[in-house]
Design a protein around this nucleic acid. Sequence first.
RNA 1: GGCGCGUUCGUCUAGAGGCCCAGGACGCCGCCCUUUCAAGGCGGAGAUCGCGGGUUCGAAUCCCGCACGCGCUACCA
Length: 485
Amino acid sequence: MRTRFAPSPTGDLHIGGLRTALFQWAFARANGGQLVLRIEDTDRERYVEGAVEVIAEGLRWLGVDWDEGPGAGGPHAPYVQSERLDRYHAVAAELRARGRAYRCFCSPERLARLRADQRAGGEPGGYDGRCAAIPEAGAEARARTEPSVVRFRMDRAGTTTLDDLVRGRVAFENALQDDFVLLKADGFPTYHLAMLADDHEMEITHVIRAEEWLASAPRHLQLYEAMGWPAPRFAHIPLIVDGAGRKLSKREGDVGVLSFRDRGYLPEAMLNFLAFLGWSLDDRTSHITREEFARVFTLDRVVPNPAAFDVERLDALNGHYIRALPPGRWRELAGEWIERGLPADVPRPLDSALLDALAPLLQERVARLDELPGLVRFLFGEAPEYPAALLAERIGGDAALAARALDAAIAAVEGVAPGEWGPVPVEAALRSLQDALGLKLRKFVSVLYVAVMGAPRGIPLFDSAALLGRERTLARLRAARAKLA
RNA sequence: GGCGCGUUCGUCUAGAGGCCCAGGACGCCGCCCUUUCAAGGCGGAGAUCGCGGGUUCGAAUCCCGCACGCGCUACCA
């Protein structure tokens, strides 16, 4: 079994495109088949330089590898459509020889007018076939001096039926079809022609693509029939939609795959998120490894209805996989993100021992890697800025209590000798405040969190203070106390 | 407008006539644990299965109609 991922190099690899690729890849792997990566760059207007590399990087990030295509080679190279133009022309010529395609000289203006008129008149729409009757010989002569396209002559009788692997049987009334363009005026093929020629030559057996292609399936089916080629099986997988139920678009925030990577999402989290968008294993599995997914994936467990992109779910998954990371790997990752995310004025390299101590404290506190720098920022450079009111925020705004807690804390911390500074003595000192204030630690500890790190939440206080050092801890406690004076 | 697809907790989904007064996950709420926040543990609320008709002893599951949503309707993919 052979399937393919055929993106257009028009910019970032879209999250929806990645999901399609993931399903294609899993299908190929689960069936011992191959995945072909093919670049569909037939639209010169939308071509974006460097997009191919961005797409490949996105796929590699997720662990979607391809057997043939750019970077992998293969018996059907080249895998870039702009380098395969001769084949499309050959197929178009064959179609014309068979009387199934013809030259069309209608101008873009006439076509626009035609569409407008049809719309105004409430008519079906589609090309009206004006050039369909032009004799081949005359058309050839005209084509030498006049711009033209080549259109496919659709069979308008009966119905075209698709047996979709996800949706079952779908029938299309042929009378409603029109003669679509195969070859554009610039000599480039449209998607329909290029897909046909390449899928056939590359021996693709399963075309797995997004639902937006469903409506053009009859064109493809008739094209295969006209060429006398066996058609592949088709599986139209559901769209990924936004909160409003619309096809996910770039306007809905950044949906580029690499931007997710750069915001600190783990590939295993993304894979899980995408895998279960429109597919499921059974009634209880909600996490799956890349390997298992590639083993158990089947198209018959893909649902036909669209799925909403839910960031909260992605974040939850990401947190889950972050916590599941082995300590060593986590230390390495956290170190990179912190090193990279801290302000430029923080001297590098960062203290390795400090990062060693920090890593375990951070692992279960973030959902995304890009949250890391913010959590440890207080350890580097100047004392954090925060409004005085924040000190008493978690204790019902009781500034007097905050002041007493700070006074007691300062005294207690001063009591810890510089030589024995560490998390355990700090904890002992701070716990002694319970007696001094006659309150449970938790009743006032938020004041100290704010004083030390500038926020009532963050990594554990005793460790924070230990890592900060005696003098800086004292300075921050005193600065906090001064804010309340 | 036309054609096509879709419709189960807020979200992703399980469900292919009785196991379902609908299961799991995320989110939400509560409790426990606890130095904050998380994490973790326990518990809870949450879908009359879009609506209306059928078929059947019995329907989320089969049939018909309707509604709504989305997709396509390019010399874009």
